[in-house]
């Protein structure tokens, strides 16, 4: 099911911190169902790129275009807006804050490295997972609850802990609740910022497994930022390697990791400890 137009199309994108670019000249296309890994050392601009793509940071140069299927039937705006929305690829810089936040609610998930940033730590897990539904206008408690239960089951949270707050959960459970919260409303694109790096290795493996199966099942497009090449290898189709705010290599993950072309990528790949 190859689509004609990509879901997300980025050309020459850059974000500036003062007079210095955090990341610059990034170009790539992302198709539905595709997982893109962004790897690089800390400070290489990975998270800046992610922030910029998800419209949390300003786009200072270049363009980001996104295929909006659902905004066309959205209930907001007048006729002129509908026409603009119906276009295939929409330049995100033309969106108002209201429309961007609508994308956040209905189309995009964002999984933070630290679950505390993405969850309300003192609201029950059920409430956390139900919140995006309520934000999207669900007003039937029974249905919200059933949907939250279903999603917590899918991320392997025991059913009897649905009414406990994530503050009482372990790190791995919190991260799984966060993933459920970001998938419950049926997004088409999910941004993940180091989703596994704060977890210990065995939990990491299970979480990656879960992410991989959910992504495949739902046909999501994912941009995952990681400094861990193993994560990129395990879940991504394509990889961007970043250094000093620019993309120095990109390609199929297996190609990039097995046959690195750029000197820095070679260094990165060779620095993995071999057992």
């Amino acid at each position: 099911m190859k689509n004609e137009t990509p879901l997300l199309s980025v050309t020459g994108a850059g974000h500036r911190y003062g007079d210095r670019f955090g990341c610059r000249d990034v170009s790539f296309d992302l198709w539905p169902g595709e997982v893109l890994a962004v790897v690089g050392e800390s400070g290489s601009g990975k998270s800046t790129l992610l922030g910029m793509l998800s419209q949390r940071l300003t786009l200072d140069e270049g363009t980001i275009r996104y295929r909006t299927a659902r905004l066309s039937d959205a209930d907001l705006g007048g006729a002129g807006e509908d026409e603009r929305m119906a276009e295939d690829l929409l330049d995100l810089s033309t969106l108002s804050e209201r429309e961007v936040r609508r994308l956040w609610r209905t189309d995009w998930g964002f999984v933070h490295q630290n679950a505390a940033d993405g969850l309300r730590m003192h609201v029950s897990a059920g409430g956390n997972v139900g919140e995006p539904l309520m934000a999207n206008g669900w007003r039937h408690y029974g249905k919200i609850r059933a949907e939250a239960e279903e999603w917590l089951r899918r991320v392997e949270i025991p059913a009897d802990r649905i009414d406990e707050a994530p503050a009482t959960y372990s790190g791995g459970m919190r991260q799984r609740v966060q993933i459920a919260r970001n998938l419950v409303f049926g997004p088409r694109l999910v941004f993940m910022d180091e989703p596994t790096s704060s977890l210990d290795v065995s939990v990491q493996a299970r979480l990656l497994d879960l992410i991989r199966s959910l992504v495949a099942e739902l046909g999501l497009a994912v941009v995952v930022v990681t400094h861990d090449l193993a994560v990129a290898r395990l879940i991504s189709h394509r990889t961007l390697v970043m250094k000093d705010g620019v993309v120095i290599e990109s390609g199929l993950t297996d190609r990039v990791l097995d046959d690195p072309q750029a000197a820095y990528t070679q260094l990165l790949v060779s620095s993995i400890l071999q057992g």
Binding site: R101, S124, G130, E131, M134, A135, G137, R145
Partner: peptide
């Protein structure tokens, strides 16, 4: 203020949800 301006009141229902759940 932004939530009021954009009429995003999902959060208010989270409070009610929590009450019913508890």
């Amino acid at each position: 203020r932004r939530l009021h301006a954009l009429e995003e009141y999902g959060l208010m229902y989270v409070k009610l949800y929590e009450d019913i759940a508890r």
